[in-house]
Design a binder for these strands. Structure first.
Lengths: 227, 227
DNA sequence: AGTTATTCTGACCGAATGGTCAGCTTCCGG
DNA sequence: CCGGAAGCTGACCATTCGGTCAGAATAACT
């Protein structure tokens, strides 16, 4: 339904959607530049001028493509939520808790790794009080959390993991994984690195998986190591 | 057309009031208002006008007290770093890992709870790439992390906890605790609460302590319950 | 009281903000 | 080759930005 959120208040009519190489490239460039700038400075702090410069286009062109600053921002948020939703596959009580939790941590970590700017954009939006995402948080995302929480509780009842509060557990996983994108500057500054390598990310993922699974008393069916 | 031409309702300063009292109160009011606005919108997105309005003072007065936007921002950052440093008491290899880690989690959680705006201000600064905190991150804070890391490693060597990477562990604790301040809007939206009560915070703290300590295989000397 | 020193603020400044629009260029079917 | 439409952009607009400053208001000290 809300696929093209450009508020065609101005007479931007649907073109034949034919030729599009330049259009696609410019659009992609603008979205990438805008994601960087919005992530860094937040909605209010970002300027169309800065976005246009990063995209290598005149400011007017950005507005020609995107209609308005608000429309551009909303479009970026929706794109990020779509990425997020893409990894929310269904799980069942019958699944193995260890597998599910590890996949959860791993996919969330990869999302932060593959789209650090989008991750920071989301963080900035939440920091600002989530003015554009209230509905999403209280609706779609809340329902998703509650569904997962129910499954975690059933696992606990079956003795497959400790009876921890599943919502706090989800928040723990979110925060721990998101941290490496949102607080990248802090992580790099403290560890003295220039960037996090793939090996670093793999190491962190392994660490988080081990600590969180063990911390929740998840019994893996693969082995019963308690070390 | 600067601001409302009706200055009547400010009603702040009584003529008979003593000298330093007004100054202190105004200064405190400005700092509190600025912390809110900077936390919400970041350095670039915050405006002195908004800060002045929240403080109930004319914009000129804010500049009279604080000199410049940059100076005000730096002062807030330094105040927050001071709060942070205040809970960085020394620990020793001789201490009990369970006690230290729990105290670590608890004090960090309370810092986020007591100063959520300051916590978000810090988060916004890091999101922006830490332009004002590079030095602090690469110097003071890095040294602190390394010192703690060394102790964690010695605990691991003595078999008091699992040989996990101490730096990732510190980041895990930071992220998990900071989450409830920085992502407050998300937490409230998903849980459907209006605010987090003291009981909620206590419950979360207990949860985090249990999961993280167990996840790192910390042996408490109090008892050996593995539940 | 009068005089000085400090505290405060409205009016103003140049720069930057998001957004508009007339008119330019480019493309493409006929 | 033409003509209309789509793609694009420089010039411009009202507003807001951080910051300055002259001078009013107040406090402090003879």
């Amino acid at each position: 339904m809300t696929q093209g959120s450009v508020p065609a208040e101005r007479g931007v009519r649907e073109p034949g959607e034919a030729n599009g190489v330049t259009r696609q490239r410019n659009e992609r460039e603008i979205l990438a530049a805008a994601e960087r700038v919005f992530a860094r400075h937040g909605y209010r702090g970002a300027s169309l001028q800065a976005i246009a410069e990063q995209a290598g286009l005149p400011k007017s062109n950005v507005l020609y493509y995107m209609g308005s600053k608000r429309g551009l921002y909303v479009r970026l948020l929706e794109r990020m939520m779509a990425r997020w939703n893409a990894l929310l596959d269904d799980i069942s009580v019958e699944d193995d808790p260890a597998d599910v939790l590890e996949a959860f941590i791993r996919s969330k970590m990869q999302l932060s790794r593959r789209h650090p700017e989008g991750s920071r954009l989301f963080a900035a939006e939440i920091l600002a009080g989530a003015p554009f995402l209230q509905e999403y948080l209280r609706g779609e995302l809340r329902a998703w959390v509650q569904a997962r929480a129910k499954i975690f509780e059933q696992w606990a009842e079956r003795g497959l993991m400790d009876p921890v509060d599943p919502v706090w557990l989800i928040f723990l996983i979110w925060s721990a994984t998101q941290h490496y994108a949102d607080f990248e500057a802090q992580v790099l500054g403290i560890t003295g690195r220039d960037e996090l390598s793939d090996a670093d990310v793999e190491e962190i993922t392994t660490f988080l998986t081990r600590v969180i699974l063990k911390g929740c008393g998840v019994r893996s069916r693969d082995d019963g190591s308690t070390d």
